[in-house]
């Protein structure tokens, strides 16, 4: 297998790598024979577009819908409404095998996402076997080359996951994901189980591989600090909705939604001259089964106004991106 970068499609065909329109997913919770239960809207009316070769960071707290969104993009879960287009093609019309050729995951925990009874070589070559490409010798050669690409010594090919460190395991997971040359990598908190020094190694590696293989990343994390380093654009999720999306620079330097501001304020840089930031956030955590009226962030929002609890804000789109907040009414200049 050659290691040349994939030939890029001609720039004229500017179909986004991923296009998500009005995507929703809800779950029935507590349903029984007697009652229908309640509806939990995990993802609601999400619109996102990711260009080829771009890194979209998705940031939000636990329960904000990040992982549900990623599972839908991997075809592991069906949307309740709306659509996902990969390369312009609706995900529901793409066969499972074809989808896995285009979209591959890297999960959070390299301790549970690798089969402990298979060797590293078997784990990395499995995608090739599944897709039936190459002879055994060719596959072994491809595995060794990929191991070098992700910074793993080829002598580890006969080792088992338990013999590897966390960082090495995450490299294995990345190598496995890249074996069939997908276009899109969905990284769900790929470094949050790792130590700081190892996290830096993996982030550098992902950055290199993106250029080498012309990859598109959807990078899910709760740490905005990482996104400044790796992402081009950032979408901020809160209770299933994208409340702000803009370039990473804009979100990091001029966040507009008060929640994005709070997330940015929570990034603790190692500066001993600074104390803890004051986020002015309310402590009332909304119950996803009984979401607050109006804007779902208003119970915690330091800038809440009377209309925030009355009506949900509309989406404002402008040259900066998208924001859903009453502070930025549609048609306003900023």
């Amino acid at each position: 297998m050659n290691m040349q970068p994939k030939t890029q499609q001609s720039p004229a065909t500017q179909t986004p790598a991923v296009e998500i329109a009005n995507l929703s997913r809800s779950f029935q919770v507590g349903a029984s024979l007697m009652s229908k239960g309640k509806t939990l809207r995990a993802v609601e009316d999400v619109n996102l577009s990711v260009k080829r070769g771009e890194v979209l960071g998705i940031v939000g707290e636990s329960g904000s819908g990040k992982t549900t969104l990623s599972r839908m993009m991997l075809g592991l879960m069906k949307p309740s409404g709306g659509s996902i287009r990969i390369d312009g093609q609706n995900i529901t019309t793409i066969g499972r095998s074809e989808l896995s050729r285009k979209v591959q995951p890297v999960f959070q925990d390299p301790y549970s996402s690798l089969n402990p009874r298979k060797t590293i070589g078997q784990i990395i070559s499995l995608p090739l076997e599944t897709h039936g490409s190459g002879s055994r010798e060719e596959r072994t050669k491809a595995v060794e080359e990929m191991m070098l690409q992700v910074g793993l010594a080829p002598r580890l090919i006969h080792s088992y996951p338990s013999q590897l460190s966390g960082g090495q395991r995450q490299r294995v997971a990345i190598a496995r994901a890249l074996m069939i040359r997908p276009e899109i990598l969905i990284c769900d908190e790929p470094t949050s189980a790792l130590d700081v020094s190892v996290q830096a190694q993996i982030l550098n590696l992902l950055k290199d591989l993106r250029e080498k293989f012309n990859l598109t990343y959807i990078f899910i994390t709760h740490d905005l600090g990482i996104l400044e380093f790796i992402a081009d654009r950032v979408a901020v999720m809160y209770m299933g909705r994208v409340v702000e999306s803009a370039t990473a620079w804009n979100v990091m330097n001029a966040p507009r939604h008060p929640y994005a501001e709070a997330l940015l304020g929570s990034v603790l840089t190692p500066d001993p001259k600074l104390g803890l930031p004051d986020l002015h956030l309310g402590r009332g955590f909304p119950d996803p089964l009984n979401p607050p009226t109006g804007c779902s962030f208003h119970p915690r929002c330091p800038k809440a106004m009377p209309q925030c609890s009355a009506n949900a804000p509309r989406t404002t789109r402008d040259e900066h991106g998208l924001v859903e907040c009453h502070l930025y009414p549609e048609g306003a200049s900023k």
Binding site: E61, S62, L224, L263, G265, L279, L281
Partner: peptide, 8 residues
């Protein structure tokens, strides 16, 4: 914990 809760 989540980052905003961590700070709190």
């Amino acid at each position: 914990l989540d980052v905003t809760v961590q700070v709190q």
